[in-house]
Simulated scan of single mutants.
Amino acid sequence: MPIIELKTYINAPIETVFNLSRSVALHTYSTIKTNEEAVDGVTEGLLKEGDTVTWRAKHFGVYQYLTVAITAYDFPCFFQDSMLKGIFKQMEHQHFFTKVGEAVCMHDIFEYKAPLGILGTVADVLFLKRYMYNFLKERNRIIKQVAENDEASLQFLNK
């Protein structure tokens, strides 16, 4: 199963980074290129353990739906979302938050299994893993940008 790992260092309080990472509004803002929006389950506020959300987004020219649940939660150090329904055969995203001096290390571990058997495996090698890496990297860039701006952080944490 392919694994994507990213570490992003953010100069903000750990609670702020953790909360922004589970903000529905910030997720929607950070995925504007794919027109992502929460359409079912928890559609606003901050996700917590046991919550589910269904995202609708346009990837590769096709609207797709992904339903995830927050399956593990330890404020402000860790949470995990796991796919319940969607295009992947399997998907799990672990989010770790660790203080490193005055900064926070946001460590993502994203594991997935492509659909369509051997065709999915080929697609993964050719473009899917790179696409998912860039998608997550952009999301983390936005989280960092917002977290390091107190005014912007408040805007997303109050929605």
Rank of each mutant, 00 (worst) to 15 (best):
G61T: 12
Y63S: 12
Y63N: 15
Y63W: 09
Q64M: 14
L66Q: 14
L66T: 09
T67A: 11
V68P: 00
V68R: 01
I70S: 12
I70P: 10
T71A: 03
A72N: 13
Y73S: 15
Y73E: 05
D74S: 15
F75G: 05
P76Y: 06
C77K: 14
C77I: 12
F78Q: 03
F78K: 15
F79S: 08
F79I: 05
F79H: 15
Q80A: 14
S82M: 08
S82D: 14
L84T: 05
G86E: 00
G86I: 00
I87P: 08
I87F: 12
K89I: 02
K89R: 11
H93M: 04
Q94T: 08
V100T: 08
V100S: 14
E102D: 15
V104K: 06
H107T: 03
D108W: 04
D108G: 09
D108C: 06
I109H: 14
F110L: 06
Y112L: 01
K113N: 12
K113S: 09
A114I: 06
P115H: 00
G117R: 08
G117V: 03
G117F: 06
G117T: 08
G120T: 11
G120F: 08
V122T: 11
L126W: 05
F127S: 03
F127P: 02
F127K: 02
L128P: 01
K129D: 02
K129L: 00
R130T: 06
